[in-house]
Amino acid sequence: MFRDAWLVTKKDLLIELRSRILINQIAPYTLLILVLFGFALDADTETLRDTGPGLFWVSTLLVAILAIQRSVDVETSDSAIDRLMLSGISPTSIYVGKTIGLYLQLIVLEALLFTVMVVLFDMSVVDYPLVIVSAVVTTLAISSSGTLYGVIASGLGVRETLLPVLFLPVLAPAVIGATRAFGDAFGRVNADGWAWLGLLSVIAIVYTLVGMLTYGNIIEDT
């Protein structure tokens, strides 16, 4: 299974390398969101520092929607999904491969977003391990559910408008947990970030297992 999954991941990353949509289109959009939030909340750095963790994860979700749509589009634009289904690669491997591909792309975007936020909002991290681990776990929750919901929305034929409506409510608990964990890691909220990380881990594991178990049935119906 993992050989096939890695094959799908490598293919998705190679497509990204060739098309450069992540670097040339999605990354600038990511930075623009953060800058606009900065303008909207005025130049009051204390407000920006307090809201920074929430802004980071809302921005991540917005760019994740674009990355998910792109990930689905790669398979559906010329019916490559049919060829994948006829290739002998199991739906679970396709799901895992596409989730890992999306995960790695989101991690790159988050690293960029994080760096710009820390510089732009003049923020300082007090617990780096918490930042790293919560980003790793939350990104897994986003990419695993995103891969699944991207295909669901695609099958209903109104992906651009329906994906955010389906996807954002599902991710709401993860965003709350991630914002709390980041708030603690930046020393901006009085919360136990590691406890929130426990919740995030459960969400990530459940979403991933649900995706692995249901992806095959969903692509059959799309």
Binding site: K11, L14, I15, S79, A80, D82
Partner: peptide
């Protein structure tokens, strides 16, 4: 099918090698 099921962003060789690995 009517559509080729290829990845437009990849080269011919990259497409063939990816599917060859899958097969």
């Amino acid at each position: 099918g009517h559509r080729t099921g290829l990845y437009p962003d990849l080269t011919v060789s990259e497409n063939l090698k990816f599917w060859a690995s899958a097969y």
